[in-house]
Design a protein around this nucleic acid. Structure first.
Lengths: 200, 200, 200, 200
DNA sequence: CATGAATGAGGCTTCATTCAT
DNA sequence: GATGAATGAAGCCTCATTCAT
């Protein structure tokens, strides 16, 4: 017999997560103190601890909810319409990333998750899932292209998926540190690559 | 033990950096305490502080010396012989990364540097330099390919450089969290991409 | 123990200040560790830090609250009744100092404040205020004596104030290190001085 | 059979003491690190430790050599000529203090010694000697004045000595924190006091 | 449910001191 | 005699977490 509506609980949870994400994007997981999150969220220590067992829990939750983002971008591309050319797919992905990457956006958090993955096993597993999902998505794309005869029948779609998955973090990082990565450049680069004589 | 040779000083510095890198790879910048580095290096607090002003300084030094690594791999490829085909170049790069990526290797540190870049401006600038260097290297490759007629004259070498630079972090991350990324897959994927009809 | 009364907060603050003063009187500002103050106050590090931002802050607070003490002694003399003879005033001041100078008393702290004043500008300013206040008080006394015709009309009351202000620290120090300074001696010495032929 | 001349040793010792005094005047006993003294003196840690067993030893030495200063000023007054009037004696003392009180001068150190006296017994004893010496000197003055009939025969010279001794620290402190204390004001104040009708 | 005062372990750093060269 | 690299205890302070109100 809960005294408070389920919805209220969910709203509180979100309020905390948003505050945490904002702080984490600004100062990083470790250099953000819980005090700052209390302040940013407008809640007390006790209140936050009612929703999250520990700082680690909060970090995990933030990492977890940032994770599906990239895959979501990809899904939307397939959902929207029929398969565009590969350079267009890549470009749309880039647009999605850029849109969700304002400072404070989830993609600002992503590299921090990758860093954790280097030594924190549970986080690594979560990040691994993300990459597996991306790869699975690209695999589907590659297979469809192959079905449609636009990829050589003897081509290995898994290898293509691995390469295209590789592009994601690098695009995010270039955007993050150089600020000049954009969808058009990526599209142009892909197109050039695709039209290159493989025998070179 | 005064009046020590310059070489001794340099050896000590390296001893500390190696210990720090090992710890950082194992537990991350923030979750490694200086005590652990003292223990790992076999030196006292005071000794370490003679060579590095603060933990931050140590982190910066580690980040700085991991930085040239990727570019070094690239340089070696050009130095070695004449320009191999693009998929071969990518494959060699991958081999270089894998070789230098045992746990504790510098590439294990890289994502932690990327994470810092999200909110630490000096570090971001250092990381930005890394990406600029990579891009510059790929640009030279692209221009040479173009000179040799293996890339369309109207192609934009900058765009190619951006795409190929993008692949680096993603390959490292897939290696790190999935463990299954290897040079052959990357080569195969690149070859397929290059032989794909761009009109698809 | 949240939502605590203002009074509770004030009591805590006092509890800490008293503990700090006791420690400082026993071992000096610099040779007292915060651990000792935590122990003496019965509070934890975190609790103390809720009320004072740093050890320096604590030192400043102790110095600040010891400051008004001497002036308070002086004020009480004027408040009490009409102006007694000068030697009596000085004697009463001495009594006040002695009474408030048990080991651990604020006057035990005073010389430590003077020492800080030699190189710590903010503290110097605070101590300067103390001396200004003392001098202002003695000036009022001198002017009243002049009004009442007991001081030559051509006398400079500021000069008198400077001399009488000078006596304070020396009396405190003699009491502190020799232990034999008392009000009667001071009164007697003043009386002799006052009855001395200035032409000597 | 000392390898080094006695004179060389003494010069080194002085070199260190001067450096220490300069640092102590600038930052205080406790806030000066030995490193700073090494730097200021141009000597190495080992060299300084050859002459002083510890930092405490150095502090004691500085306190000890600053101590005779005030008494020296007093002695010079008596040595110079025959006994001047009391207000002149006080004024000369003030001149002596002011002359030796530039920042870095010994009198800048004095309050730090007084502070130590509050809780450090050996230092207190040393400071006590200083006050005893001052008092003894004033006692001699008072007795001579009494002999010369310029002080009432029934006056207590000890009481006078106590009062005049009291003036010293207060003058130093006013000079230190207010900067405006000078010999003329002190002389004027003393003269006024001496010419005041004690019956007031 | 919420508050926020309190806890205390543990982090980073300094610095007096030693001793091999 | 002198040097200065090295030691390591101890200091100040932060911060995740708890719990009485």
């Amino acid at each position: 017999m809960p005294r408070v509506s389920e919805e209220h609980l969910e709203r509180r949870r979100l309020q905390i997560l948003d505050a945490a994400q904002s702080c984490f994007a600004r100062k990083g997981f470790h250099e953000t103190s819980l005090q700052e999150i209390f302040r940013e969220s407008g809640l007390s220590a006790g209140a936050v601890y009612r929703y999250f067992r520990s700082k680690d829990d909060l970090i995990r939750a933030i990492a977890a909810r940032s994770q599906p983002l990239v895959v979501a971008i990809l899904e939307e591309i397939l959902d929207a319409d029929e398969l565009p050319p590969l350079d267009e797919i890549v470009a749309r992905f880039a647009v999605g990333v850029v849109e969700r990457m304002g400072p404070g956006g989830a993609a600002w958090i992503a590299p921090q998750g990758w860093a954790l993955a280097a030594y924190n096993l549970p986080i690594r597993e979560a990040i691994a899932d993300l990459f597996r999902d991306s790869r699975a998505w690209w695999l589907r794309v590659a297979e469809r292209l192959q079905d449609e005869g636009e990829l050589a029948p003897e081509a290995d779609p898994h290898a293509i998926a691995a390469v295209l998955t590789s592009i994601i973090p690098g695009f995010i990082m270039q955007r993050l540190v150089l600020g000049d990565a954009d969808a058009e450049t990526l599209r142009e680069g892909m197109r050039t690559l695709l039209s290159t004589d493989p025998a070179l």
